[in-house]
Amino acid sequence: MTTAPAPVLKVCGATAPHDVEVLAAAGADRVGLWHGVPGGPADLPERELAALAAAARATGALEPVLVTFLSDPEALAAVARRAGIAHIQLHAYQPPAFVKALRAALPGAHLIKVLHVRGGRCLERPLIGAYEKAGTDLFLLDATTEDGRVGSTGVRLTESHVLDLADRFTLPFWLAGGLTADSRPEYDEVARHPRYRGIDVDTAARDGRGSFSAAAVAGLARAWGTARYVPHA
């Protein structure tokens, strides 16, 4: 019987080298770098994306994840190659055909597809099987607002909705949506799920001024028992 890997802590929205340094030192495993997110507060031009991806890799602790709404698979593949990013998070409503084309263009990439949940209903539910067949490696379960806003919404999924959705697919998954260190007890069953692989946060990793906080990141890693948290004896 194989043991599931320790869950990862992904923190989204880095925009400067200092952000990368704070996250690496505090125990994050992945850093989400936004590109092709129109109007997004953390959206990066390609040159800055590449620079921050290199800075993340240089820490020896952080793996960069390209988070995007882009809808052209060839253009996205070219950006990922130039930036040297192997993990790509499709955070909008790109169809299975997009995933298939991106997989063909980047056979060695790790493709993460967000499944959006609104009011307890997964909007991509009829397409889950097609996403799996197209070459998705991992699903990220996230909530939208009632008016359809996606990404860093702070809206939390109930554990029952997460477990119900996880029963609909066979891939590993991450959990997002308003998660905090204090919310960990609400997800005991999720944390024990054999295909659970980690959490994705943004606001919970920041202080009151909106800057990344080493204490907040370390608290998340401790509460959720993620890969780089080592309990003290």
Results as ranks from 00 to 15, higher is better:
130 A>H: 12
46 E>H: 12
102 L>M: 03
84 G>A: 14
71 S>E: 15
109 A>F: 02
65 V>P: 10
120 G>A: 09
96 P>K: 12
126 P>S: 11
86 A>K: 09
51 A>N: 03
64 P>A: 03
86 A>C: 13
136 T>W: 06
50 A>H: 10
122 C>P: 02
67 V>Y: 05
131 Y>P: 13
70 L>K: 04
128 I>G: 13
89 Q>N: 13
108 G>P: 00
56 A>H: 14
50 A>L: 11
136 T>C: 10
55 A>N: 04
88 I>G: 03
114 V>N: 12
143 A>G: 02
82 R>L: 10
117 V>F: 02
103 R>M: 05
74 E>T: 06
132 E>C: 09
134 A>D: 06
59 T>R: 13
44 L>F: 12
119 G>L: 02
62 L>V: 14
76 L>K: 08
130 A>R: 15
80 A>V: 00
87 H>C: 12
83 A>I: 09
107 P>T: 06
144 T>V: 13
107 P>C: 00
81 R>C: 09
61 A>S: 14
72 D>Y: 05
132 E>I: 06
90 L>Q: 05
68 T>V: 04
49 L>V: 00
59 T>W: 14
124 E>S: 01
93 Y>K: 14
136 T>Y: 00
128 I>P: 14
57 R>F: 09
48 E>S: 14
73 P>Y: 04
61 A>Y: 08
101 A>W: 03
145 T>I: 04
79 V>F: 01
62 L>Y: 13
90 L>D: 07
73 P>E: 04
108 G>I: 00
72 D>W: 05
122 C>K: 12
54 A>S: 15
78 A>G: 09
123 L>K: 09
105 A>G: 03
53 A>L: 10
77 A>N: 04
69 F>E: 14
135 G>A: 03
93 Y>G: 07
43 D>T: 05
139 F>K: 07
106 L>E: 05
50 A>E: 14
79 V>E: 04
45 P>R: 02
75 A>D: 05
86 A>D: 15
63 E>P: 07
107 P>Q: 02
80 A>C: 08
